[in-house]
Simulated scan of single mutants.
Amino acid sequence: MNIWGIDLGGTKIECVVLNDQNLGVIARQRLPTEADKGYDHILFQIKKLINRVADQLDESPDRIGFATPGVLEPATQTMKNCNTTCMNGRTMQKDLEALLKIPVRIANDANCFALAETRMGAGRKHQNAEVVFGIIMGTGVGGGLIVHQKIIKGHHGIGGEWGHNILDENGPQCYCGKRGCVETVISGPALEKAYENFTGTHLKLNEILQRHLERIDAHATTIIDHLLENYGKALSTLINVIDPDLIIIGGGVGNMDLLYTEGYERIKKYIFNNGILTTPICKPELGDSAGVFGAALLWE
C-alpha cells in the first residue's frame, strides 16, 4: 500500500503519496490552510485535500502521517507550542482519526524534516550516521533528533527543541516566556531586528549579508559576527549533549555559506573536545518537500 503524508503549514496544506517500495512520488497537491477561519476549517481543508488526491489516484489512504507546527503533548494528547494558535489545546490526532476514519500519526514539522533528510535526502550520503540532528534556522529555530532512522520525541514530546535553550539571559523576549532563546538571537527576523535597532533601517537578512561581504557596512558585519558567534555557542551545546554523527541545517538562514566555514570554526571555540570538531554539517537536499515526505515516513 502506498504511504500518505500531510504537511500542515500556517499558509498551506500539502499532501503527498509515496510508493512504499522506492519512496517515489506518486501524487502531490496543495491547498491554502486558511487558518484565520479557525480549527474546524483547517480540518475541513485537510479532508478536502485528501479527497482530491484520492479522486486523482482512485485510491484512499488506510493510514496517514501529519507534520504539524507544535507537538502532541503525550500526557493529555492535546497540541501545544503551535504558532497556528487555534490548534493549541486541541485533540488533533483524535479529531483527525474521527474525521478521516483511519489511523493517524502526528509529529512536529522539524522532526519530519529531520526524518526525511535522514532517509531520503542528505543522510543518504552518510549511511553510517546512526544519530542525526536536523536543524531548521529560518523564521523560527527548531530541530529534530533521529536515532537509527526513528524520531526521538522525548518524555514531554519536545525532543530536539534546541531553539528554546537560552543563549542570552538578557536577550529579547521570546513568545515561550523566556528571554534570549536561540530563536530570538539567530533566527532570520531576530537578526533583521538587531540590524534595525543599530541603524534605524530595516533590511532583509540576505541584504545584510551582502553588505557584510562587500565590506561596506560595519553594522552589517557586527550582525553577521553576532550570528556566527552565537551559532557556534548553540551548536557546541547541541554537540556536547548529543554528539550526533551528522547535522543537517535547513531554513533560510541555513542557506548561508558562512555557517559551514567561519561558523564551523566558531563551534570549535566552545565544544568540549579540546577544539577538535569532525562532525559533518551539511545543507538539506529535499527543499520544502522534507516536511511532507517526513510525514509520510511516520508509518514506515
Rank of each mutant, 00 (worst) to 15 (best):
M87T: 13
T139S: 06
G160D: 01
V104M: 10
T68H: 13
K125Q: 06
V53I: 02
H148K: 01
G134E: 01
Q149N: 15
Q173E: 15
T76W: 04
E73C: 14
G159S: 13
H126S: 00
M92V: 08
A129I: 01
R119A: 01
K47A: 14
I186K: 04
F113T: 02
R179P: 05
L99K: 06
R119N: 11
Q127K: 09
Q173M: 12
I102E: 00
G154Q: 04
L72W: 02
G121D: 03
A116Y: 01
A75V: 03
M92L: 15
T76K: 10
H156T: 12
N83E: 03
C174V: 07
F133M: 10
W162P: 11
T118F: 00
H148L: 03
K48P: 14
A98C: 14
M92W: 06
Q173K: 12
I158G: 00
G142S: 07
A54R: 05
T84V: 15
K178N: 11
F44Y: 15
G89S: 12
M79N: 05
R105Y: 03
D62I: 10
H164E: 15
C181S: 07
C112D: 06
L96V: 12
G171Q: 06
N170H: 10
W162C: 11
E59D: 09
G140P: 01
I158Y: 14
V131P: 01
H156R: 13
Q149H: 09
P172I: 07
A98S: 14
H155W: 15
G180L: 06
I46F: 11
I106A: 03
L57Y: 06
V131H: 04
L99T: 13
Q93F: 04
L100M: 13
A116F: 03
C86T: 06
M137V: 15
D95R: 07
I152P: 00
V132C: 15
P172Q: 12
H148N: 13
I135L: 08
G171E: 05
H148W: 07
L100N: 13
G157D: 09
D62F: 09
D55Y: 05
H148P: 03
V53C: 02
V104T: 11
H164C: 14
R63V: 02
L49V: 09
K150L: 04
K80H: 11
K153T: 08
G177H: 01
D109C: 07
G180S: 03
D55N: 15
T85V: 10
A122R: 00
F113E: 04
I136N: 14
Q77C: 14
N108W: 09
M137H: 08
M137Q: 09
C181E: 08
A110Q: 05
F66G: 00
E73K: 08
V147R: 06
K150H: 03
K101C: 10
K178I: 04
E130A: 09
G140Q: 10
C181W: 04
H156I: 04
H126I: 06
S60A: 06
V131I: 07
L115I: 12
R63K: 10
R63Y: 10
D55E: 13
I64L: 07
I106D: 00
K101L: 12
G160W: 11
L145V: 14
I136A: 13
G65Q: 01
M79R: 10
Q93W: 09
P103L: 11
I166D: 00
